[in-house]
Simulated scan of single mutants.
Amino acid sequence: MINKIDKLKDPLVQEARELSSSKKRIFKNKIQLRGLEQLMWAKYAGLKIESIFISEDQNVDDYSGFSSPTYQTSNGILKKITETNYLIPCVGVAEATPNNDDFDDFVLLLDDVKDHGNIGTIIRTGKAYGINDFITTNDDFDPYIPKTIDASRGTAFKVNFKRYKTPQSAVAFLKEKGYQIVATSPYGKSLQSTVELDKKPIALVIGNESVGVCNEVLEAADHIVQIPMHTGVESLNVGVATGISIYELRLKEVLTMLAEKIISSLGRKVSVTSKLIRRAFDIKLKEISEFSGDQIIFLMVLKRKSQMNEEQIGEQFGYFGDRLEKFISPLYENKLIKKEYEEIEITNAGEDLLAKLWPIHEKTENILLEGLTAEERKNLKSYLEKIQQNCIKIMKYEV
């Protein structure tokens, strides 16, 4: 339903009008959205759009996709809301993303960057490289100036901003959080592509368009680097320089932190856990049986599937060639399995062994899951199944 507002003094109009000022936007942590494109960006970013004002000339059906209250008003009131002498046919009010101190391992420190277009480009470039946190050295920094929003193509709505009053306070905070400060300067002693980074999170400093990074930040920086340029080129646009710096430092970060990232990766954790589980089952089964946990699980799978060939066994249990022969030979020798043509089946003796060992298997599983509630056990199984399904999706596209 579209309501009408015809008074400039309407409280909703007054609040929207206040947000044409940077000071009010910062104070209220709200945004004035100008035009349908900015409204769409805000919607897709998940922002709460509190109200939308549209011109009487607008087709109301164009706004049916928004759940926010929508008001039709005069062109004159819309111009007053935006404080412009030209008409913007739709204007919105949205809550900005709350600021927080929970930063990722790579952040950008904007040291008095002034140009609104440059700021939008830096935000968009940073987000493209997975950077979500932007720290500033001035507390009047406003990422929601219309030109900045447009230059960022709405990515300003998807990132986290943290303002500090001075460069010193911003750097002190980052150092306290364990970040290494990397500043760019034409006089840097190291080339950016050759700098040896520490195994710490990175705060890349983007300097002012005219004077670059201030002395206070340079003095506190852990690394001062330069981007090599061809003779005759004095400097790069700050947005272009930011893209080059992020790319090179991201690569450096990956190479420097590679060992730590591998150790903490999902694949490795799952692999280590799998090996530990197998070892635990082996220890418990060896107490009463000569067979390993994998051999018992193989018999269980065989019982369920009726038949398997050697290729299927290899794919499921990771045994091939001599290892596969060593794996299944004891089962043949003890007449627990038999081969019919190319297919392997479980025997009656194998089924009897499973019946005897199943309580041990179940008891071991309960020991491994000790401390988990019934709900947590159920969730664990569900999570593992989801991961398996996602792996299968990837394998389906394997060439």
Rank of each mutant, 00 (worst) to 15 (best):
Ser271Thr: 11
Glu290Cys: 09
Met257Gln: 15
Ile283Glu: 15
Arg268Val: 13
Lys286Asp: 05
Leu251Met: 14
Arg279Trp: 11
Val272Arg: 08
Ser265Lys: 04
Ile283Leu: 13
Lys286Met: 07
Ile262Glu: 12
Ile262Trp: 07
Thr273Ala: 15
Tyr247Ala: 06
Leu258Ile: 03
Val254Arg: 10
Glu290Pro: 07
Ser271Phe: 13
Thr256Asp: 00
Ala280Ser: 10
Arg268His: 13
Ser265Cys: 07
Met257Trp: 06
Leu266Trp: 05
Glu290Gln: 13
Arg279Lys: 13
Ile262Pro: 06
Leu276Phe: 08
Leu276Gly: 02
Leu249Val: 03
Ile262Gly: 04
Leu266Tyr: 09
Ile246Thr: 01
Ser289Val: 05
Lys284Gly: 09
Ile246Tyr: 02
Phe291Ser: 02
Glu248His: 05
Thr273Gln: 12
Ile244Met: 14
Ser274Trp: 06
Tyr247Phe: 13
Ile288Lys: 12
Tyr247Pro: 00
Ile263Arg: 10
Thr273Cys: 13
Ser264Trp: 03
Leu266Pro: 03
Ser245Asp: 07
Ala280Asn: 09
Val270Ile: 15
Lys261Asp: 14
Phe291Asp: 04
Gly267Tyr: 07
Lys252Phe: 04
Arg279Leu: 12
Lys275Gly: 06
Leu251Glu: 14
Leu285Val: 00
Lys284Arg: 14
Lys261Thr: 03
Ser265Val: 02
Lys269Phe: 06
Lys284His: 11
Lys286Ala: 09
Phe291Leu: 14
Ile246Asn: 01
Leu251Trp: 01
Thr273Asn: 12
Ala259Pro: 05
Leu251Phe: 04
Lys286Asn: 11
Arg250Thr: 08
Arg278Leu: 07
Lys261Cys: 03
